[in-house]
Amino acid sequence: MTLETGYGYAVSRLRAMELRILGKSLFQRLLESDDFKDAIKTLGETHYAKWLSDDKGTQNFEYAISMELQEAYDEVDRFTPDKELSQLCRLPYDIHNVKVLIKGQILKQKGSKKRTDLLTKLGNVPIDDLILAVESEDYRLLPFGLHRVVPESLMLWEQTHDILSVETLLDSHLFLTMRQLVQKVGYKGVEAWVHAKIDSENVRNILRLRRTGMDAGRAIEFLHDGGWISKEKVLSLLSEPVEGWNRILGFADVSRVFEGVPETGNVDDLVSDIEKALDNYITDVLRPYRYSTFAPENILTYLWSKEIESKNVRIILVGIANGVDKESLRRLLRNVQ
């Protein structure tokens, strides 16, 4: 009999913290708000209240969303036995920050002003450290292989002036680092989650590339290794109609994404429906572990739920502020748990 007690405290605390995650009924209430002010008022009845109470939060809901997410990450960091699980979820923010800084360097070369306001504190690496490393061109102390990939990206930009290639290089590095972290912790569910994330990203990329009419030779550069489905198989989707993707990917779990997508003539609707289904698919990968008392995967489940919650809140508030009809907004909402 094994004693899986390392996560007894952490998972129990998360169970209590899950009560704070916004549910369907709250999203429904937010959707039914008469206007943006009303929606902010409804959000103020939740755990977000503390970020909305100051002027900064009321005027800039993005600040409230970001602070709520930041608090969730910081709290989990304090008690999770494996920091790698939280690092996994924070890594995309590090890569986002690197992209912002690289684009800032490019703008600087062109004589424009840098956009440091787009940097987020949600990453593993403190923003100041990243800025200092890029400004001083001393990358040696950057963790997660960033010491190698940041100068490599800048060099690629110098050589090609192709920002898409730079972004793809950084994304590939993101997934490679995620896979390395997974190997370090060795949890089956975490591995499945990362595989699902990579598959979802590849499918999302191929969907977007298909719209731009890109040829297969170039498109393969935008796909990443490490998913359940090989890059070649994903690439074969490029020449097939979306209706046939379910059949082609029938052997993989991700094929269920295309089962739930309603038939629509509108390409934009189709893309947003598939993107939503991909997020739901990633959520579903972790679902079996929700019933396990000591499963480390519960850490990921909680953090991913908070990410999806943020996404939903952002969709609703941006939609209401821009007068998007409620039915369209409802269609975009992801399953939080």
Binding site: G8, A10, V11, S12, R13, L14, R15, A16
Partner: peptide, 18 residues
């Protein structure tokens, strides 16, 4: 002792929040 310890860990986790 082990059983009470396991339950105690879980209890402490819940009581931290509530």
């Amino acid at each position: 002792a082990i059983g009470v310890g396991i339950a105690g860990e879980a209890g402490a986790g819940v009581m931290t929040e509530d």
